[in-house]
Simulated assay, not measured.
Amino acid sequence: MNKRHSDKDTRSNYPYAVLNKALEVSAKQYGEFEVLVAKHLLPNNRTVELLEDGKLLNVIMVVTTPEWEKKTIPIRIPLRFGVLAYRLLAIHKDNQIKFESVVTIDDLKKFTVGLHRNWATWDIMTHLNFKVGSGYSYEALFGMLDKGRFDYLPRGIHEIYDELEIRKSEYPDLVVEPKIALYIPAPFYMFVSPKHPHLAVRLTTGLETMLSDGTLKAMFDKHYSQSIKKANLSERTIINIGNPLLPPETPLDRKELWLDINSYK
């Protein structure tokens, strides 16, 4: 399994917990387990190659793309119930007035978005002809935003508050834009090496068990319900960016897999 991007990167806490729980609830049927994290952070293009090979990596959790679904075994149960579809904008406080008139995609395209070159969102927004400022490090993106290299950094509603709070002493002028949210469907799955199909079967069994008995939703709410409520999406202008790269196999018909934002008020 790949390692986190930095010591300040808390995004992995929840998926690591879900992975361990899925293995735990399937232990009676499939046996004991051990989770080992890669010693070095690997870029997505290298990671997919290693997962394909199956010798050093056999499972990773990332936002889905056609490449990931083609080259590995996707377990199409969105671990975060699709919450990443909703993004808020991290901005420099001096630029807040610039976003007050933004209500459409065309309005937003007047500004430059900051994205990691290896993120699925980079592929989506470049495909849709947004002006993109690329960063090659998760941590560097916050510094680049602070220095005005781009105008906004879209972050999941479950990520942004913790991310800015953790970096408050370093970047005190970075804030959450108060009126806008973006909608970009981006399911976050487990992907398993095609060389280890037995592991995919085991993890699918574990996740389906957690889904049916409510464990997965309970874990999700424990980690993210407060941030979802704080985002106050009902009071924001939601700009539907869409995702033209969303694989057609996405299980949109399984309503139990997707978040009901209206239940968090």
Rank of each mutant, 00 (worst) to 15 (best):
L79A: 00
L79D: 02
L79N: 02
L79E: 06
L79I: 15
L79P: 06
R80L: 05
R80T: 08
R80H: 00
R80D: 09
F81T: 00
F81K: 02
F81P: 02
F81M: 02
G82W: 00
G82R: 03
V83N: 03
V83M: 11
V83I: 15
L84Q: 04
L84M: 12
A85E: 13
A85W: 06
Y86E: 06
Y86K: 07
Y86C: 01
Y86V: 06
Y86F: 14
R87I: 04
R87F: 05
L88W: 01
L88H: 06
L89C: 04
L89H: 02
L89Q: 00
L89Y: 01
L89R: 05
A90Q: 00
I91H: 02
H92G: 13
H92I: 10
H92V: 11
H92M: 03
K93P: 06
D94W: 11
D94Q: 12
N95W: 09
N95D: 15
Q96L: 11
Q96H: 09
I97T: 08
I97D: 13
I97L: 11
I97N: 13
I97R: 12
I97C: 09
K98G: 04
K98R: 09
F99E: 09
F99W: 07
F99Y: 05
S101D: 15
V102M: 06
V102Q: 08
V102H: 10
V103G: 10
V103H: 15
T104K: 09
T104D: 02
T104G: 03
T104N: 07
I105T: 14
I105H: 09
I105Y: 14
I105L: 13
I105W: 13
I105F: 05
I105E: 14
D106A: 08
D106E: 13
D106H: 12
D106I: 05
D106Q: 14
D107W: 04
D107I: 07
K109P: 09
K109R: 15
K109I: 06
K109A: 07
K109C: 12
K109T: 06
K110P: 05
F111H: 10
F111K: 07
F111P: 01
F111M: 03
T112S: 08
T112D: 09
T112R: 08
T112G: 05
T112E: 13
V113D: 03
G114D: 07
G114P: 03
L115C: 11
L115D: 04
L115W: 01
L115A: 14
L115F: 05
L115M: 10
L115V: 08
H116N: 13
H116V: 10
H116E: 08
H116D: 14
R117Y: 08
R117K: 11
R117F: 07
R117P: 00
N118I: 11
N118W: 06
A120E: 01
T121H: 01
T121M: 04
T121W: 02
T121Q: 06
W122H: 15
W122L: 12
W122M: 12
D123Q: 14
I124K: 00
